[in-house]
Design a protein around this nucleic acid. Sequence first.
DNA 1: AGACTTATTTCATATCATAAACTGGATCTG
DNA 2: CAGATCCAGTTTATGATATGAAATAAGTCT
Lengths: 415, 415
Amino acid sequence: MVARRATVRDMRRSNRSVLLSKIYLDGPLSRHELTQLTSLSPASVSTLVAEFIEEGLVEEAGSVESDGGRPRVLLRAAPGFGHVIGVDVGETRVTVELFDMSMAALGKADHPIERATLAPEMMVGHVLDGIGAVIAQSGVNAEAILGMGIAVPGVVDQGDDGLVHAQSLGWDGVPLRAMLRAGSSIPIHMDNGAKTLGQAEMWFGAGRGVDHVVTALVGSGVGASVVAEGASYRGARSSAGEWGHTTIMYGGRLCRCGARGCLEAYVGAEGILDRFREANRGKAAEGIDEESAIGAMIADADSGASRAAEVVLSETVGYLGAGIATLVNLFNPERIVLGGWAGLALGGRWLPEIRAAAAEHALRRPFEQVSIELCQLGPDAVALGAATLPVAALLANGGVRARAESPRPLRISGL
Amino acid sequence: MVARRATVRDMRRSNRSVLLSKIYLDGPLSRHELTQLTSLSPASVSTLVAEFIEEGLVEEAGSVESDGGRPRVLLRAAPGFGHVIGVDVGETRVTVELFDMSMAALGKADHPIERATLAPEMMVGHVLDGIGAVIAQSGVNAEAILGMGIAVPGVVDQGDDGLVHAQSLGWDGVPLRAMLRAGSSIPIHMDNGAKTLGQAEMWFGAGRGVDHVVTALVGSGVGASVVAEGASYRGARSSAGEWGHTTIMYGGRLCRCGARGCLEAYVGAEGILDRFREANRGKAAEGIDEESAIGAMIADADSGASRAAEVVLSETVGYLGAGIATLVNLFNPERIVLGGWAGLALGGRWLPEIRAAAAEHALRRPFEQVSIELCQLGPDAVALGAATLPVAALLANGGVRARAESPRPLRISGL
DNA sequence: AGACTTATTTCATATCATAAACTGGATCTG
DNA sequence: CAGATCCAGTTTATGATATGAAATAAGTCT
């Protein structure tokens, strides 16, 4: 609501951003189409496009035949303008991927992590190694890397040091951005993994072209990424969307967060398996990990081999529907995208039932206005989503690169 | 994220808006202070302020002595620049109030409503009568009325017709804006009553100066108004913030919305009284209406006269805390403002307990970042909040009045 | 070949924020 | 009490910008 002051330069930047975003996200488009889509004048489109081409941001991409008239020249964002890196810092591995501007993958490095070595310094080492590896693999000029996006399984304070709070890694206030900056001059963008996955779905998956989307992620943990009016909803301190710990059964099952009755305690993988064991006279589901155990449950429920699995999963669908209804009622989105490996497993089999359960618990009107869909990109899109962060920053800035910083020695602040 | 194209005119409007909003919301201020607060240049501030004074939007308000230097001249929004009307369309009455720009009340008209006469045509009649009455009372020039804000107990589609969906009035798609426009040339702004109350608290109450606020309203109904980054969070179709029908007890009490386990069924006035009756061996709380009945319960719980009241209210505090925790986890606000008559009654007595219950169910970090406070303006601020809508529109538009429309005959669209 | 159609570019113009220079209005100092 | 000093606010010249209108480019159609 309270806008900032504007100068003619801001105007230029804003218009460049509008135009470049259209070309990048909806291209290829002709100058003529761009004037209509952006409501900029033909003169301005012409001038700005000329700038973009001059700068290498945009290139011509053939033309469209006309039926009596000058043919339109199509424009697209130049895939080779620069490269971006996406990093998925997970609980079990670090994945680093390098993309060109069209998000075509040019290199990938994977590093499994043992539980014992979650120390931030180790993690930073893995990330930097991975970056070196993908640059070497792809042979791109390190100067041409616009930035890297880091997805972490926790909350990121968007301050200068990029403090990360991630319970699952045992991190509480780790200055990850500052630590990475000490080892690399590539501009760093950071966000929560659920939010980057949501971002990937917004640009390339089930959220394309929609402005109000909540991506609901169900795996071992349960979280959500909220996009409103095309922009990520972060809240005051970037921790919005903690869907897994909303109370759905007051006084109910104990959650690993310490509270009772959290959604995660019912629809998170661990919660499902615990409930199954209880329903199955103490006998756990078979599988070497959570994912295969839940896969086995679904198969057994489907084949009728396990009544307990059938009951527990059917209850899970109910809880999940109620949880989705909470999102619908509070955020009033146009679309709910259900993802995460457990969400995909459940949704792949029972999406209509999940929709019905949500309908039961949501208000009629907002429910009628929402469509509930499955994730399209799969759980590995976290790094892809992370890599969109520097691209999003470039677009928001009208195509002007953030200046690369020289590596800054890590300074311990405070005390 | 996707900004719109900008012209020099937009820039001017935006800068006027920034400057005027500062003067209105934080004034009186000197030109010098304004340059620092808005980061506009002294030259621009000078020019724009001169325009505002010329147009009557702003006036000088004394000066501040200096210690060796030219004294600063203070500026404030001119209270007499125009007038605004706020209308609270409630389930039991229609209240119309007229204010000057400083939100000083200059006239008020109240019209009780019998349950039988909720027909939209009647309601429109009451509103128009009320407007005539407050204009006559206050003696202001009808031309000088900038606009009216209408608060309704339901969802408002922000389209041209201003369709209103209000279950409690039995309205489903009533084109209230179009109907009012047929009887008045004053520009019309509409919103949900909870949202206008939240808006009032943002400007003049417990939400002042905070950018991320959720106002939680507990009365007969239960709802919330979400403000993020200083702007109302509406969702895709303006129905965001339906907190009352989030599931807090899966499979629990039947709510009047038809679902089971809604928060409203536990902490809404009716839910509290129902639960008390059940706990009190079928004997209801005493009082001619819900408000006095709950007042009596609180008094009895306090004095130890009723163990049942004590238990039920203590449980209510728990449910309310869990509901608030859901808001904290999902929206990550800086402040929760608890209001509504029942919310104030409960909060007035048990605010520390409510905070503690919220702490139990919220994640530690977001809970530490939020302060939970009581509403400051009371439930009658709905009309005041509604009246801020035209002022907000004026500020957003840089002080340029929406042109008054000539009354447009009501056209039934469709069919 | 000439008419026509549509896309894009060029050019003159008006709007705007701003830096820098300047003026206004007060206190302080010797 | 003169003038030095300090700070608030105003004026002026400048450069950046989007745009409407006119011109041009690049085709098809007859």
